[in-house]
Amino acid sequence: MTTLRTQSLSYTTPQGRELLHDITLSVAAGETVGLVGPNGSGKTTLLRCVYATLRPTTGRVLLDGADLHAMPVRARARRIATVPQDTDAAAIELSVTEVVAMGRSPHHRFWEADTAADATLVREALARVGIADLAARPFPSLSGGERRRALVARALVQQPDVVVLDEPTNHLDIRYQLEVLSLVRELGTANLLALHDLNLAAYFCDRICVLAGGRIVAEGPPADVLTKELLGSVYGVDAEVGIHPATGAPTVVYLPPTRAVTTS
């Protein structure tokens, strides 16, 4: 069974700013773990260390016990698929089909062409994320939400063991937010994703890790982590947290700041 683990991971910028400190977490096959926290808490930096665009200053990222950063690039790419936060790829003059088909490249030698089986995987992935009708469109011409779905399709055709997603619901309307997160959960992969929407995290994640100031300040099942006290201390907001009768998941309702009443 595939297990992704970060072990005492820290990251400090070349300018000396520590963005992550002593992060230890694990994600097993079939499990979805959500990273939540305010802007600047370290979520994206942690994901970049996991999918190896950043190298941790200290600590390691382990995949089934092997150091991920010591793996050959192609071997790593066969096992980990990423859906990055930034989908601004105006310089990529490729069709949607060509972008999605890039997910098959780790499975071929550089001189090998895509096969009929690859083409079938691409068509099926495009259909699963609801953009089969956009297959021939130039990727830069898509809306932000359409690009996001195309990158999820690229991850699907990669057939990875681990899927890492940074704000996968950005730019998506509510229908596709629900469909994309449902699809990710159905893959059976080890899923690590950063989310801003705490209600989506509560419903779709098996466990939640709360980051603040580059540290994990809470970790566990959503019902244990998402409390009124934690939301006040980490996010600085007042909120009510209850269990939704239909879903059984915690539901967060944010309360506006109390305004002082003035009398004349």
Results as ranks from 00 to 15, higher is better:
C49W: 05
S8C: 11
R48C: 08
V27C: 14
L181V: 09
P106R: 04
V184I: 15
M71P: 01
V253I: 13
T6G: 08
T87E: 04
D173P: 01
N199S: 03
A246P: 02
A202K: 03
F139I: 05
L62G: 09
A223S: 14
L193Q: 11
D88E: 13
T58D: 12
L142P: 04
R215V: 07
D166I: 04
S182R: 14
T12K: 06
E124C: 03
E98W: 01
G65E: 01
R207G: 07
S95I: 01
T58Y: 00
V164N: 10
L198K: 07
T44E: 03
G213W: 09
R74A: 15
D166Y: 06
Y11K: 09
D88F: 10
P257N: 09
V129S: 11
P56W: 06
W111G: 12
A77R: 05
S233E: 15
G130P: 10
E146F: 03
D86A: 00
R259Y: 05
S8T: 13
L211Y: 04
V129C: 11
N170H: 13
L121P: 07
D64A: 13
T53M: 03
R123W: 01
T115F: 09
A218K: 08
A260V: 14
T263I: 13
L94Q: 12
G144C: 07
V217F: 03
D86S: 10
L172S: 06
A113Y: 01
S182Q: 13
G16C: 11
Q85H: 11
E240G: 11
I216A: 04
G42K: 11
Q159D: 15
L19A: 14
I80N: 06
P168S: 01
T44Y: 02
T53R: 04
P72N: 08
R104N: 10
V73T: 14
A190P: 00
T44P: 06
V164E: 07
L230W: 01
G34T: 09
